[in-house]
Amino acid sequence: MRDRVWITLGLIVFLVGITYPIWFNNAAGVRAEAPVLRKPVKGPNCVAPLEYMRASHMELLTAWRDEVVRQGNRRFVAFDGRTYTMSLSKTCLDCHDNRAEFCDRCHSYAGVSPYCWDCHVDPRQARTVRAWAGRPQAEGWAR
């Protein structure tokens, strides 16, 4: 029983230690707020009801992808009767024209990083890379 003081002290130090981020953020006034998303430039609706898009846009994209690539269907008649071309770069990014402040902002908050952009080109990015790709390719193919 002689170690009781040390054990209690140790526990207190441990508890303070693991809850430190909470104290610190509270003191600094940091709050976990939902990310502020850039408003779409066109509307009034998304390609599916807002609640569906919020929760399941990745499923819609997968369905679009399979329809286009595997079935050869490229047109989409939405729930509100509007017609869209099923395309990630040409349709989603036409209305949500700022990927960084829409898709990426929410994704970094949620901790997801879709690999789609390894291939699908963001029209904004296309412009910057275009300038860069014009450089002479004298250094050969080496990475």
Binding site: V47, A48, P49, Y52, S56, E59, L60, A63, W64, E67, Q71, G72, N73, R74, R75, F76, V77, A78, F79, M86
Partner: peptide, 15 residues
């Protein structure tokens, strides 16, 4: 016709 329902909408071949 190979069409599927997606989120209240529907796919269709190009016109």
């Amino acid at each position: 016709a190979g069409l599927v329902q997606i989120a209240g909408g529907q796919s269709a071949p190009g016109e």
